[in-house]
């Protein structure tokens, strides 16, 4: 089922004097329950793209259709639609938790979203405790000042704050940046669980190709304001010229597989995770 559809969306930033185009005629269909990764070099338009998904930005031409709303370039009409409804459905987790944590306690901060979307205090509180557990924050932290927590914990509070709104789509902006390798893995594992148990659509904006290899079912590549690739990740990694043109790197696993193939070890080119590499190597050895 189609959840969000972008048709010919363009966006131009303007400061009254300079006009900087940021997105040029992008088509994108997000299917319910899929795991989508969006990658692109700095300035490729990926941030601008995802901000259209919950109407933080509105298209300057083209349309965004999502959850029964059709957002056009007509700002007045858009306002009448009630865009906050869409923000509850599409939860956007920003890269830096410092940009959103403000309440005196962790619990209050997580309750902020649900309260804004009309939940009662009791419901919001129950939901907040529930989400603290989901993201792996101990209950003892509920009364702490959020900005006094460690970076990893702050990130969890921020994620819990979005999850508490119960969105159908989760958009994650650079979810692993600034976390140690262990924290990165835990964070991604958490999102995978949410995806599997609650069937949330995941949209991951990243430049970490290992995250793409490990977690994405579908990959969107942005390059100078345009969508240049839309398909399965392994298909992209085999297009060497496109990868280079987009200034992207290959995931470690793909590099490994490619150098092994050059050594004459027959491995499938579609291999993306280390588990698959190991399994394939064992199989290869058994065959020999």
């Amino acid at each position: 089922m189609q959840q969000i559809t972008l048709k010919g969306v363009s966006h131009t930033y303007s400061d009254g004097y300079h006009e900087t185009p940021a997105l040029e005629s992008v088509d994108l269909t997000v299917m319910a329950g899929e795991r989508l990764a969006i990658v692109g070099h700095t300035g490729s338009g990926k941030s601008t793209l995802v901000q259209h998904l919950n109407a933080l930005l509105q298209p300057h031409s083209g349309t965004v259709e999502a959850f029964g709303l059709t957002i056009t370039q007509d700002a007045k009409k858009n306002r009448k639609l009630g865009l906050t409804k869409l923000r509850q459905k599409v939860g956007l987790v920003f890269q830096y938790p410092e940009y959103q944590l403000f309440a005196e306690t962790v619990l209050e901060d997580i309750m902020y979203g649900p309260l804004n979307f009309g939940a009662s205090r009791e419901d919001a509180e129950t939901k907040a405790y529930e989400m603290m557990e989901v993201v792996g924050l101990p209950k003892t932290l509920a009364d702490r000042y959020p900005l006094a927590l460690s970076g990893g914990q702050m990130r969890r509070v921020a994620v819990a704050g979005i999850l508490a709104m119960n969105p159908d789509v989760l958009v994650l902006d650079e979810p692993t940046v600034g976390l140690d390798p262990c924290g990165q893995k835990e964070m991604m594992q958490l999102f995978m669980e949410l995806h599997e148990t609650l069937n949330k659509t995941l949209i991951i904006v990243t430049h970490d190709m290992d995250v793409v290899a490990n977690y994405a079912q579908r990959l969107i590549v942005m390059q100078s304001k345009k969508k240049v690739f839309d398909g399965q990740p392994h298909q992209f990694f085999q297009k060497r010229e496109l990868v280079d043109a987009c200034k992207m790197e290959l995931p470690h696993t793909v590099e490994l597989v490619q150098s092994l193939r050059q050594q004459g070890i027959e491995l499938d080119e579609g291999i993306l995770t280390f588990e698959e590499v190991i399994a394939a190597l064992i199989e290869e050895e058994d065959a020999v």
Partner: peptide
Amino acid sequence: KIMKAQASRGA
């Protein structure tokens, strides 16, 4: 950025 982060939470 802050305004967008809070708008995403319904502010």
